[in-house]
Protein backbone atom coordinates (compact mmCIF):
# COMPACT_ATOMS: atom_id res chain seq x y z
CA UNK A 1 0.00 0.00 0.00
CA UNK A 2 1.23 3.47 -0.89
CA UNK A 3 1.08 5.91 2.01
CA UNK A 4 1.83 9.59 2.12
CA UNK A 5 4.12 10.95 4.82
CA UNK A 6 1.32 11.98 7.16
CA UNK A 7 -0.26 8.52 6.95
CA UNK A 8 3.01 6.76 7.70
CA UNK A 9 3.58 8.95 10.71
CA UNK A 10 0.07 8.58 12.02
CA UNK A 11 -0.14 4.83 11.56
CA UNK A 12 3.31 4.18 13.00
CA UNK A 13 2.56 6.39 15.98
CA UNK A 14 -0.38 4.07 16.63
CA UNK A 15 1.82 1.00 16.05
CA UNK A 16 -0.52 -0.07 13.24
CA UNK A 17 0.43 -3.67 12.44
CA UNK A 18 0.10 -3.24 8.67
CA UNK A 19 2.28 -0.13 8.60
CA UNK A 20 4.91 -1.79 10.79
CA UNK A 21 5.03 -4.85 8.54
CA UNK A 22 5.21 -2.74 5.38
CA UNK A 23 7.96 -0.53 6.76
CA UNK A 24 9.96 -3.53 7.91
CA UNK A 25 9.67 -5.05 4.41
CA UNK A 26 10.70 -1.77 2.79
CA UNK A 27 13.72 -1.40 5.08
CA UNK A 28 14.73 -5.01 4.45
CA UNK A 29 14.56 -4.48 0.70
CA UNK A 30 16.46 -1.19 0.80
CA UNK A 31 19.13 -2.59 3.10
CA UNK A 32 19.57 -5.51 0.73
CA UNK A 33 19.98 -3.09 -2.19
CA UNK A 34 22.26 -0.70 -0.35
CA UNK A 35 24.50 -3.39 1.12
CA UNK A 36 24.60 -5.67 -1.90
CA UNK A 37 27.95 -7.40 -2.22
CA UNK A 38 29.16 -6.58 1.30
CA UNK A 39 30.66 -9.54 3.08
CA UNK A 40 28.68 -10.54 6.21
CA UNK A 41 25.53 -8.73 5.01
CA UNK A 42 23.54 -11.96 4.75
CA UNK A 43 19.78 -12.29 5.21
CA UNK A 44 19.92 -12.94 8.92
CA UNK A 45 22.15 -9.87 9.43
CA UNK A 46 19.82 -7.75 7.29
CA UNK A 47 16.75 -8.99 9.17
CA UNK A 48 18.32 -8.04 12.50
CA UNK A 49 19.19 -4.61 11.11
CA UNK A 50 15.69 -4.08 9.70
CA UNK A 51 14.20 -4.92 13.09
CA UNK A 52 16.62 -2.66 14.96
CA UNK A 53 16.01 0.11 12.41
CA UNK A 54 12.26 -0.18 12.83
CA UNK A 55 12.65 0.48 16.55
CA UNK A 56 14.97 3.41 15.81
CA UNK A 57 12.41 4.90 13.40
CA UNK A 58 9.60 4.59 15.97
CA UNK A 59 11.84 6.18 18.56
CA UNK A 60 12.68 9.15 16.33
CA UNK A 61 9.28 9.57 14.69
CA UNK A 62 8.83 13.09 16.04
CA UNK A 63 12.14 14.10 14.40
CA UNK A 64 10.75 13.47 10.92
CA UNK A 65 9.73 16.84 9.49
CA UNK A 66 8.42 15.72 6.13
CA UNK A 67 11.21 17.25 4.06
CA UNK A 68 11.72 13.99 2.15
CA UNK A 69 9.71 10.85 1.50
CA UNK A 70 9.16 9.09 4.81
CA UNK A 71 10.69 5.86 3.49
CA UNK A 72 13.84 7.72 2.36
CA UNK A 73 14.27 9.13 5.84
CA UNK A 74 13.66 5.74 7.45
CA UNK A 75 16.13 4.13 5.04
CA UNK A 76 18.80 6.68 5.98
CA UNK A 77 18.34 5.67 9.64
CA UNK A 78 18.53 2.01 8.65
CA UNK A 79 21.83 2.55 6.82
CA UNK A 80 23.29 4.11 9.96
CA UNK A 81 22.18 1.10 11.98
CA UNK A 82 23.50 -1.44 9.46
CA UNK A 83 26.88 0.16 8.80
CA UNK A 84 27.29 0.76 12.53
CA UNK A 85 26.84 -2.99 13.08
CA UNK A 86 29.22 -3.94 10.29
CA UNK A 87 31.91 -1.58 11.57
CA UNK A 88 31.44 -2.67 15.17
CA UNK A 89 31.92 -6.34 14.38
CA UNK A 90 35.02 -5.61 12.32
CA UNK A 91 36.71 -3.36 14.89
CA UNK A 92 35.51 -4.63 18.26
CA UNK A 93 38.82 -6.34 19.08
CA UNK A 94 41.13 -3.49 18.06
CA UNK A 95 42.46 -1.35 20.88
CA UNK A 96 42.87 2.36 20.42
CA UNK A 97 46.21 2.41 22.22
CA UNK A 98 47.70 -0.32 19.99
CA UNK A 99 46.44 1.42 16.88
CA UNK A 100 47.89 4.82 17.79
CA UNK A 101 51.01 3.74 19.69
CA UNK A 102 53.43 6.63 19.95
CA UNK A 103 56.38 6.46 17.64
CA UNK A 104 58.58 9.12 16.11
CA UNK A 105 58.21 9.35 12.42
CA UNK A 106 60.23 10.85 9.60
CA UNK A 107 58.19 12.58 6.92
CA UNK A 108 57.22 9.96 4.38
CA UNK A 109 57.29 10.69 0.69
CA UNK A 110 53.71 11.77 0.07
CA UNK A 111 54.53 13.02 -3.42
CA UNK A 112 55.54 9.61 -4.73
CA UNK A 113 58.40 8.93 -7.12
CA UNK A 114 56.75 10.34 -10.21
CA UNK A 115 56.63 13.99 -9.11
CA UNK A 116 59.12 16.61 -10.31
CA UNK A 117 62.01 17.28 -7.86
CA UNK A 118 60.78 20.74 -6.76
CA UNK A 119 57.27 19.39 -6.20
CA UNK A 120 58.73 16.49 -4.21
CA UNK A 121 60.64 18.91 -2.04
CA UNK A 122 57.61 21.04 -1.34
CA UNK A 123 55.49 17.98 -0.56
CA UNK A 124 58.13 16.75 1.84
CA UNK A 125 58.17 20.15 3.58
CA UNK A 126 54.41 20.05 3.85
CA UNK A 127 54.41 16.51 5.23
CA UNK A 128 57.11 17.43 7.74
CA UNK A 129 55.20 20.55 8.86
CA UNK A 130 52.03 18.52 9.22
CA UNK A 131 53.67 15.78 11.27
CA UNK A 132 55.33 18.37 13.51
CA UNK A 133 52.02 20.12 14.03
CA UNK A 134 50.28 16.84 14.89
CA UNK A 135 52.96 16.24 17.55
CA UNK A 136 53.12 19.72 19.03
CA UNK A 137 49.84 21.54 18.44
CA UNK A 138 47.28 18.85 19.23
CA UNK A 139 46.34 17.52 22.65
CA UNK A 140 47.08 13.84 23.22
CA UNK A 141 43.37 13.11 23.03
CA UNK A 142 42.96 15.00 19.74
CA UNK A 143 46.00 13.20 18.31
CA UNK A 144 44.76 9.77 19.33
CA UNK A 145 41.27 10.37 17.94
CA UNK A 146 42.44 11.87 14.67
CA UNK A 147 45.06 9.21 14.00
CA UNK A 148 42.60 6.41 14.83
CA UNK A 149 40.11 7.91 12.40
CA UNK A 150 42.72 8.12 9.66
CA UNK A 151 43.47 4.46 10.27
CA UNK A 152 39.82 3.67 9.70
CA UNK A 153 38.61 2.98 13.23
CA UNK A 154 34.87 3.76 13.40
CA UNK A 155 33.87 6.89 15.30
CA UNK A 156 31.52 4.95 17.58
CA UNK A 157 34.37 2.66 18.59
CA UNK A 158 36.83 5.53 19.18
CA UNK A 159 34.21 7.35 21.25
CA UNK A 160 33.50 4.20 23.27
CA UNK A 161 37.17 3.58 24.02
CA UNK A 162 37.73 7.24 24.93
CA UNK A 163 34.69 7.17 27.20
CA UNK A 164 33.09 9.87 25.07
CA UNK A 165 30.13 10.31 22.71
CA UNK A 166 30.11 10.41 18.94
CA UNK A 167 29.08 14.09 18.91
CA UNK A 168 31.82 15.06 21.35
CA UNK A 169 34.32 13.05 19.33
CA UNK A 170 33.31 14.88 16.16
CA UNK A 171 33.95 18.19 17.89
CA UNK A 172 37.32 16.93 19.14
CA UNK A 173 38.58 15.91 15.68
CA UNK A 174 36.98 18.91 13.97
CA UNK A 175 38.85 21.21 16.36
CA UNK A 176 42.02 19.24 15.63
CA UNK A 177 41.58 19.65 11.86
CA UNK A 178 40.94 23.37 12.25
CA UNK A 179 44.07 23.76 14.34
CA UNK A 180 46.28 21.82 11.90
CA UNK A 181 44.96 23.76 8.96
CA UNK A 182 45.53 27.05 10.77
CA UNK A 183 49.12 26.05 11.60
CA UNK A 184 49.89 25.00 8.03
CA UNK A 185 48.48 28.26 6.74
CA UNK A 186 50.54 30.19 9.28
CA UNK A 187 53.61 28.31 8.00
CA UNK A 188 52.87 29.61 4.52
CA UNK A 189 51.06 26.67 2.94
CA UNK A 190 47.90 27.69 1.11
CA UNK A 191 44.65 25.78 0.79
CA UNK A 192 45.74 25.13 -2.80
CA UNK A 193 48.89 23.34 -1.61
CA UNK A 194 46.70 21.01 0.42
CA UNK A 195 44.29 20.38 -2.43
CA UNK A 196 46.96 19.73 -5.04
CA UNK A 197 48.68 17.38 -2.63
CA UNK A 198 45.58 15.40 -2.00
CA UNK A 199 45.05 14.82 -5.67
CA UNK A 200 48.51 13.40 -6.31
Amino acid sequence: MNRDNATWRQQLAQHDAGALADLRATLMRNLRRGLAGRPRADDSFLEDCAQESLLRVLDKLDQFHGRSQFTTWATALAMRVAFGELRRSRWKDVSLSDLTADDDQAAPDVAGDGAAPDVQLQQRDLAAALLASIQHDLTARQRTALVAELKGMPQDEIARQLGSTRNALYKLTHDARKKLRERLEAAGFTADDLVSDAGK
Binding site: P108, L131, R143, V147, L150
Partner: peptide
Protein backbone atom coordinates in the same frame (compact mmCIF):
# COMPACT_ATOMS: atom_id res chain seq x y z
CA UNK B 1 51.74 7.65 15.88
CA UNK B 2 52.98 6.20 12.59
CA UNK B 3 50.99 7.47 9.60
CA UNK B 4 51.45 5.94 6.17
CA UNK B 5 51.83 8.19 3.11
CA UNK B 6 48.27 7.29 2.17
CA UNK B 7 46.99 8.35 5.59
CA UNK B 8 48.92 11.61 5.42
CA UNK B 9 47.51 12.32 1.97
CA UNK B 10 44.03 11.56 3.33
CA UNK B 11 44.60 14.02 6.17
CA UNK B 12 45.74 16.76 3.77
CA UNK B 13 42.61 16.21 1.72
Amino acid sequence: MPLSPTELAKLLE
